[in-house]
Nucleic acid binder design. Structure first.
Lengths: 164, 164
DNA sequence: TCCAATCGGGACTGAATTGGTCCCCTATCG
DNA sequence: CGATAGGGGACCAATTCAGTCCCGATTGGA
């Protein structure tokens, strides 16, 4: 289903929460605010700190804070923080080892174009956008309406694989 | 790492191969041409047929053929054929049940914007683009050897992703 | 000077998903 | 009527993911 990890999902939730209240808060506080289990918050925060999106203060009265204003944190940054470089396939440019089967890459660098397109799309949306209070209580905006609209378009929550 | 399934990767390989030689070919022939194991080709093809990207002919002398010209098959179509609707999170529009924890969706429909952006990016690239002979790939175009027999296999196209 | 509060880095385990194979049925051609 | 080819799952092994926990390092305050 082409989805991000649940941990990444958590990361976004946490970041949104941090963007809304920019105070230094400890992991357990953020956990209490968001409903995400404390150990999970800690785990996600480690990744966010490592990737430079969040600043941490250690010791008593320590906690976490956004490293940059929310406008300068893109969705791409969040995903990359948790899942590494954005690449739909393992076949990316810096693959020093050629694919084991030559016949596999007759499309060679074509995936890179796809990766770039996706990355660009994800760089165009920021944490500030995600943290913005939704205009309507429920979702009503966004009418994608490009293609696929006819009937499909809908995954159930917890959508599983196509077949089952 | 935000990647597609391996089966989807195979699907693209298979489709590219079909786009380049538009003859009706049996699964085992396509398998021989691409190096993908026969049962896997069969499995992928089933999904492609079900989603309407590929036409199949049964019976003796049967086989597969693209249902549309490659220019009208988008990368988004291929991904959706194998993985269902494109949505980065399970939290999509038609989720009739609110997320189990209210605090989880303070961003409400913001993910939809992201999903739409990604989908649009993937709709902008077609199978024809992927099938185009690469101008300057990294790996000098290797001759289409029919399956590296050796049995080595060891499928290690894995590249980054180990970072986290 | 200690102690308590917090973060940092992994290790570890159970569960879920994926990948790949196989079996049997149906359809078509010669 | 037999051989060839796809259709639809069922099935198991392997990989990956999610979540928890432990211990060391750091800091502020009593």
């Amino acid at each position: 289903m082409f989805r991000i990890n649940k941990l990444t999902d958590y990361a976004v939730v946490l970041l949104v929460d941090m963007a809304r209240s920019d105070r230094v808060r400890a992991a357990h506080q953020i956990a209490a605010d968001t409903g995400v289990p404390v150990p999970t918050v800690a785990k996600v925060m480690k990744a966010l700190v490592r990737s430079g999106l969040v600043r941490s203060t250690r010791g008593a009265a320590g906690g976490y804070l956004l490293a940059r204003p929310a406008e300068r944190i893109a969705v791409a940054d969040m995903i990359q923080a948790l899942e590494g470089p954005i690449a739909l396939t393992a076949c990316v440019e810096d693959a020093d080892e050629t694919c084991d089967r030559e016949t596999f890459c007759p499309m060679a660098g074509h995936w890179n174009r796809v990766n770039a397109a996706v990355r660009r799309a994800l760089e165009g949306i920021t944490l500030a956008d995600m943290a913005a209070e939704p205009a309507s209580p429920h979702w009503s905006t966004t009418a994608p309406a490009s293609r696929a609209a006819g009937g499909g378009e809908a995954g159930e929550r917890r959508v599983s694989m196509a077949s089952s």
